[in-house]
Simulated scan of single mutants.
Amino acid sequence: MTSRIDTLYGAAFVALSAAAFGAMAIFARYAYAGGTDVLGLLTLRFAIGGAILGWTARRRGMVWPRGRALAAIAALGAVGYVGQSLCYFIALQHAQASLVALLLYLYPAFVTVLAAWWLHERLTPVKCAALVLCLAGTALMVGGGRGEPLGIALGLGAAVIYSIYIVAGTRATRGIDPHVTTSVICLVAAVVFGALSLARTAAGAPPHWPATAGGWAAVIAIALISTVLAMLAFFAGLARLGAARTSMLSTLEPVVTVTLASLLLGESLSAMQWVGGASVLGGVLWLVRAGGGASEDAVALEANQ
């Protein structure tokens, strides 16, 4: 009975995390409308979110990495996480939020290919068929999408960087509590974006902070809901469900984004995009069932979006 209750709680936590992550693209569009730019948004997101996650990790008495382990995780944050965040949030200015979210969710397919090439994992016929399904779905989404080529390219770029980050981070974070890993990565990202903000200010082109109450509310929602709440709920679900089931439930995220984009932003997907999006998500679920990138360490890194 206890196991069943734990499973239900775990599913609820992962669904909550997926909904919080899925809402991030919508919050970002409102933040841009409120006067902020990408650098201002990301600086505030990681300064607020990183501080809270770091504080909660210390309050729980978690052991922080040192030496090479700390340096490796810091590099993940400074290069991989910062690069992925920049691509994703700039893409949201040049393409539909729903399209960008679906393109980002190609990362399990890229992880599978990278793991085969870099970690010498076997590409089974099932994995190959799932990859073909993802590729066909992407072609349909891009062909039927409404967005500038720059937005589509950056959306794909975010997925590629994210997949490299996960594959490289799987080894670097082994044996380290995922909450601590996430705290370090967010704090490092806050330092990088803070430094970029200072450099731009010194050059006479400071980042744009929110100019309206709605803009501030959207930025704070990204920091508290789509960062802190989303990550803590993800880890709570992962501890109860394990890697494979957590990965499968996390595919709710782009569904949430597409639904909210339709309801709140008035975005509509063409019939071709619906077919393409369904193909991508179907291929991703197929990959997860086949074991593509579903180790505990890899899935824990997926909390960093």
Rank of each mutant, 00 (worst) to 15 (best):
R4F: 05
T7Y: 14
G10H: 13
A12M: 14
F13R: 07
L16D: 07
L16S: 11
L16R: 07
A18F: 04
A19T: 12
A20W: 07
F21I: 05
F21Y: 15
G22V: 04
I26M: 07
F27Q: 03
A28T: 10
R29N: 09
A31T: 05
D37W: 11
V38A: 09
L39G: 02
L39F: 08
L42F: 05
L42V: 02
L42M: 06
L44G: 02
R45M: 02
R45P: 00
A47G: 07
I48G: 02
A51Q: 05
W55F: 13
T56D: 12
R59V: 05
V63I: 12
W64G: 03
R68C: 01
L70W: 12
A72H: 09
A72T: 08
A75F: 05
G77Q: 11
G83M: 08
G83E: 09
L86H: 01
C87D: 04
L92T: 01
Q93F: 09
A95D: 02
L99Q: 11
V100K: 07
L106H: 09
Y107R: 11
F110D: 00
V111P: 03
V111W: 14
V111I: 14
H120P: 00
H120M: 10
E121C: 08
E121V: 04
L123H: 05
P125L: 15
A129V: 07
C134I: 11
C134H: 10
A139V: 15
R146M: 13
L150D: 03
I152R: 14
G157L: 13
A159D: 04
S163R: 14
I164R: 09
I166G: 01
V167I: 06
A168L: 14
R171N: 03
G175E: 03
D177L: 04
D177A: 04
A189N: 02
A190W: 05
V192L: 08
G194Y: 12
A195F: 15
A195Y: 13
L196Y: 12
L196F: 12
S197T: 12
R200E: 13
A203M: 04
P206Y: 12
A211C: 05
W216D: 04
A217P: 00
A218N: 02
A223E: 06
T227I: 06
T227F: 12
V228F: 11
A233T: 07
A233F: 11
F234V: 05
F235L: 04
A239V: 12
A244T: 15
R245Q: 11
R245C: 03
S247E: 02
L249N: 03
L249E: 02
L252K: 08
V256T: 11
V256S: 06
T259R: 04
L260H: 08
S262M: 10
L263P: 01
L269H: 03
Q273M: 11
V275S: 10
V275F: 15
S279I: 07
G282M: 08
G282V: 06
G282L: 12
G282D: 03
G283I: 10
V284Q: 11
W286K: 03
V288E: 13
G291T: 07
E296W: 00
E296M: 00
A298K: 00
A300D: 00
A300R: 00
E302F: 15
E302P: 01
A303S: 11
